[in-house]
């Protein structure tokens, strides 16, 4: 839990930080989609290489990032292991009771491992290098066309930016509550599954109560400052598309086209 960095922003001024957030979001989604469509063993390695290059240029720090996704890596390893042991198709190398290792199982286990790793790394990198404000601006700019069919885009983007803003606050809160309950003798890393689930009540319950209280306070504060929903708001921040964005955009698209033309076909 201490190293849980999902949704955290790591401020910096690297090449990746400076890219247009709309570009980053688009390419992140593109890479995730590409990683889901590939079937060869070589393609994920190329995509991982792209990820590695991005991590290196982002100056986020390898150790920090890998520590942060440890939890996800464990989960992914578990799912891959289950896929490896439970799917039977193709040549069967070994079996025991309901478990077996088959050529097809091995293939999808490895592929799904790579797919999830790529998706986690690249989305983590997007979140680490893009401030919450930029993320909500990006989302609202992507939703902008929906205004024509009367979708309350302004409200949605405000809700998203508030939600993102409160992720670190709530993480801090969870830490504080855990500290307090540990001081009252709760041992989070002991006991069977049911005991551990029970142990989440002393954390989740105060967390919900405090979050509702905070939401009420926030709503009052917004009303007092005269907030009314769904008005046009100008933005103090402008997003700029630079030449670097064009270069990265073209480079990633080319890599993905090449993967599909040369390796996947």
């Amino acid at each position: 839990m201490d190293n849980f960095i999902f949704g955290q922003y790591s401020p910096g001024d690297s090449f990746i930080h400076r890219l247009d957030p709309r570009n980053k979001l688009f390419l992140t989604i593109l890479i995730i989609v590409a990683s889901l469509l590939i079937h060869s063993w070589v393609s994920p390695l190329i995509l991982l290489l792209v990820c590695a290059f991005a991590i290196q240029t982002s100056h986020v720090g390898w150790h920090f990032l890998i520590h942060g996704i440890k939890f996800f890596i464990h989960m992914i390893l578990l799912t891959s292991l289950l896929q490896l042991l439970l799917s039977r198709s193709g040549k069967v190398y070994w079996y025991f009771w309901i478990f077996n290792i088959s050529s097809f199982g091995a293939h999808i286990a490895i592929m799904s491992f790579f797919r999830f790793i790529i998706a986690i790394i690249i989305s983590m990198l997007f979140l680490l290098t893009t401030s919450p404000i930029e993320i909500s601006d990006t989302i609202s700019s992507l939703l902008n066309p929906l205004k024509f069919i009367h979708v309350p885009v302004e409200d949605i983007s405000l809700t998203i930016s508030i939600a993102l803003r409160f992720v670190p606050t709530m993480t801090g809160e969870v830490h504080r509550i855990m500290d307090a309950q540990k001081s009252r003798g709760v041992q989070f890393h002991k006991g069977n599954v049911i005991k551990r689930i029970k142990m989440s009540i002393p954390i989740m319950f105060p967390l919900f109560i405090n979050t509702f209280k905070r939401a009420e306070d926030l709503a009052s504060a917004m009303i007092l400052r005269g907030y009314t929903g769904n008005r046009y708001r100008s933005s103090i921040r402008k997003m700029h598309w630079h030449i670097n964005d064009t270069i990265v955009f073209i480079a990633i698209i080319l890599i993905i086209i090449l993967i599909f033309l040369l390796i996947e076909s």
């Binding site: 504080r176 500290d179 307090a180 001081s183 003798g185 009540i201 002393p202 319950f205 105060p206 405090n210």
Partner: peptide, 24 residues
């Protein structure tokens, strides 16, 4: 190791700021 600290926590009671936020 964290596991050795259970006995310590029994002897040392800590009350944090605004402890009423931890009632459940």
């Amino acid at each position: 190791d964290d596991a050795n600290l259970y006995e310590l926590r029994k002897k040392v009671g800590v009350i944090f700021q605004f402890p009423e936020h931890q009632l459940f």
